[in-house]
């Protein structure tokens, strides 16, 4: 049994997500794309019409009117709007995958904790940030080998791929990502840094993950763990690539006191699939991929539940 889904918010993110679902959704059937403007004023809704997807132009009212068509809603609007929509989805019994910074539900990273979050019965899950989706899996990979005392990530994204939402709320990005490094990645402390680079042609999304661990850590084991997680991520995000395998910085390599710790540095580049957004916009691509990956896991669990106990969602 597949899950029927709607996308709310036909902007860049919503449109890219639509193409991903149509391209490679396994157990997700996209039923409707919903916006608030007439089709002729919305590139995203127009794209949906072109792809043969039904559209709605009345925002949340379109969802209410067709609620029996869906099991799951992707929220690709804004934090403020998701806060208004979330109780409606709950009343309608719709599972919500939240791509905004609202974070009403738990931070969710498909390869790290999506199965657990869904199994715990949450029906509203949040996709953290693009930088979080790129780096939290690495922190988790290190942490399962050797406890991460401190994790720090930097994300460099092309200026052209940073929309007004990111620009007006840049603190939200760093604060949310840092919290995700801790809550999902497993680090005791987390810090996040973002830079926007206007170079032309636009740069690919690049991320660096620093993890501070005890000096006795078996680095080869960490590398194996990171490789394994990276290939898990690649099944959702084909353009995800480790460009520097965990490399050791010891006391001699830094100007501050490291105590009994070493630093492991891992670098990642994310190239987008280029369905709707250009390949350099890996930062947007990884969010839509994470949302689809999460929804697929929700679908798998509901299939398993059906097989096990005949439980249906109504």
């Amino acid at each position: 049994m597949s899950l029927d889904a709607a996308i709310v918010g036909p902007g860049n993110i919503g449109t890219d997500l639509m193409y991903k679902i149509l391209d490679r959704g396994e157990n997700i059937d996209l039923q409707r794309m919903v916006g608030i403007f007439p089709v002729e004023e919305s590139d995203g809704l127009q794209a949906a019409v072109d792809e043969g997807v039904d559209v709605g132009t009345e925002g949340i009212d379109s969802i209410k009117a067709h609620a029996d068509e869906f099991d799951l809603v992707f929220e690709a609007t804004s934090a403020g709007i998701h806060e208004q929509h979330a109780p409606v989805y709950e009343d309608l019994g719709l599972f919500a995958v939240d791509l905004t910074p609202a974070a009403i539900g738990p931070y969710t990273v498909p390869v790290v904790n999506a199965d657990d979050v869904v199994a715990e019965g949450h029906e509203n899950v949040n996709m953290v940030t693009c930088g979080g989706q790129a780096t939290i899996p690495i922190v988790h990979a290190v942490d399962r080998v050797s406890s991460v005392e401190y994790a720090e990530m930097t994300s460099h994204i092309a200026s052209k791929s940073a929309g007004p939402g990111t620009r007006q709320n840049i603190d939200k990005f760093t604060q949310t990502t840092a919290a995700g490094l801790e809550e999902v990645g497993g680090a005791e402390d987390g810090k996040a840094i973002i830079t926007l680079n206007p170079a032309e042609p636009p740069i690919m999304m690049r991320n660096t993950v620093y993890t501070m661990v005890d000096e006795s850590t078996d680095v080869d084991e960490v590398r194996d763990s990171v490789d394994e997680v990276a290939s898990d991520v690649q099944s959702d995000v084909p353009g995800y690539e480790i460009t520097l395998e965990p490399e050791v910085k010891a006391q001699d390599d830094v100007a501050f006191d490291l105590g009994d710790s070493i630093i492991l540095t891992t670098m990642i580049e994310v190239e987008g699939e280029g369905q709707h957004l250009p390949p350099y916009a890996g930062n947007l691509d990884i969010m839509t991929s994470a949302a689809l990956g999460t929804a697929e896991r929700v679908a798998e669990q509901s299939i398993e539940a059906d097989v096990a106990g005949g439980v249906s969602d109504d």
């Binding site: 930097t154 460099h156 680079n197 520097l244």
Partner: peptide, 17 residues
């Protein structure tokens, strides 16, 4: 040549490697 900007210190390691 890469037109790196302030804050991208981690790319020094990337380039050197």
């Amino acid at each position: 040549e890469m037109e790196v900007v302030g804050g991208q210190e981690d790319l020094i390691t990337d380039v050197a490697a």
